[in-house]
């Protein structure tokens, strides 16, 4: 499924935006201007942008936890001002400041994160079941290689394949879970090999290539909407930074080597996408400069919105009123 020039431009723009947002979050947590953790997505923002930019409005989107779903949020058109306000505990936060970094955006059919990695393997079955009943929507279920250690992952694949549910299992495989490496934690290097046991079509792609990701996910989405059932897309990606800002960057107990990290940086998806859009004359350098300028301005605007919003400190009575539907 070849991409048109306009589609490539949109992907490029969303990638640059997502990259700026991720760097904004890293800066802010270093400055003490974020609540909770931040798990940086530096060097791995292409997968989320590519997977989410061309989904339908009715599709359900579960973002990957890394970068707190920013690549997916940027691709989906989530209001990043309200996203950041939530991460700073403000009244304009998308969940009224209650979720810390486990944000949701139900109006965009992003139903929220949990602190339990792999939690989404449970509701994804129902998202798929409901999507099949409705017939005009599918589920993009993103998660990392680490989450496939959860037993629920296998239940989800079993149910999805059994019932031919319209789900794309989209795995961002960066080869690491906190300090553990995939070679220590999984018997096979490709997580998608798990899908074979369920007879689920699976493909491994370069998760650093935002265009390849978008093409593959669009094809998988078409497969799902045609009633052909789930597919597994494994996007090989990388992790330039530590698991979360503030913890040491280790592989097992050893620091990752500087030379190795320098090599990884050559695979930065923004670098790769820029050379491609220039080489294929999709964008000029001048247009790229404008995209960067706009992204910078959007970051400023987003930060101002969140910083200007008052801290959310509702009374206990107001909070109690929100526990149950009256």
């Amino acid at each position: 499924m070849a991409l048109g020039k306009e589609q490539m431009k949109l992907l490029y723009r969303n990638l640059v935006r997502a990259d700026h947002f991720d760097k904004m979050m890293m800066n802010r947590i270093m400055q003490g201007k974020l609540i909770g953790f931040y798990h940086p997505g530096d060097g791995a923002m292409a997968a989320g942008v590519g997977a989410s930019t061309f989904l339908g409005d009715d599709d359900i989107l579960n973002p990957h936890h890394r970068a707190h779903g920013l690549g997916y949020a940027a691709g989906r058109g989530v209001d990043i001002g309200r996203y950041l306000a939530e991460h700073t505990g403000k009244v304009d936060g998308c969940c009224g400041g209650r979720s810390s970094f486990h944000w949701s955006f139900p109006e965009k059919k992003m139903y929220g994160a949990s602190g339990f990695i792999g939690w989404h393997f449970c509701p994804v079955v129902g998202w798929g079941w409901a999507s099949k009943r409705k017939g005009n929507q599918m589920v993009l279920m993103a998660s990392g290689d680490g989450s496939y250690g959860q037993g629920g992952a296998h239940e989800a694949m079993l149910f999805a394949m059994n019932w031919k549910l319209p789900i794309v299992f989209f795995c961002e495989n960066n080869g690491m879970a906190i300090h553990s490496t995939i070679s220590d934690m999984h018997p096979m290097p490709d997580i998608s090999s798990l899908a074979q046991g369920y007879g689920m079509p699976a493909v491994v792609i370069d998760g650093q290539d935002v265009f390849a990701v978008a093409e593959t996910v669009m094809a998988a989405r078409k497969h799902a909407l045609a009633g052909k059932g789930p597919t597994f897309v494994e996007a090989k990606t990388l992790r330039l930074r530590e698991h979360d800002v503030g913890t040491p960057d280790l592989a097992r107990a050893e620091p990752r080597e500087a030379a190795y990290l320098e090599e990884l940086k050559k695979r930065d998806p923004v670098v790769l996408a820029t050379s491609r859009v220039l080489a294929e004359k999709v964008l000029t350098q001048k247009q790229i400069d404008k995209i960067y300028k706009d992204a910078k301005a959007e970051v400023e605007q987003v930060e101002k919105f969140a910083d200007d919003s008052p801290v959310a400190q509702p009374s206990i009575e107001e909070l109690l009123a929100g526990v149950y539907v009256a």
Partner: peptide, 23 residues
């Protein structure tokens, strides 16, 4: 009337996710 494999997470998830979707 939906029967599932012996897998409570998937079984429960069928309900949990569908409830988010208006069922």
């Amino acid at each position: 009337i939906v029967d599932t494999p012996l897998a409570e997470l998937g079984m429960y998830g069928t309900a949990f996710g569908a409830a988010m979707e208006g069922f």
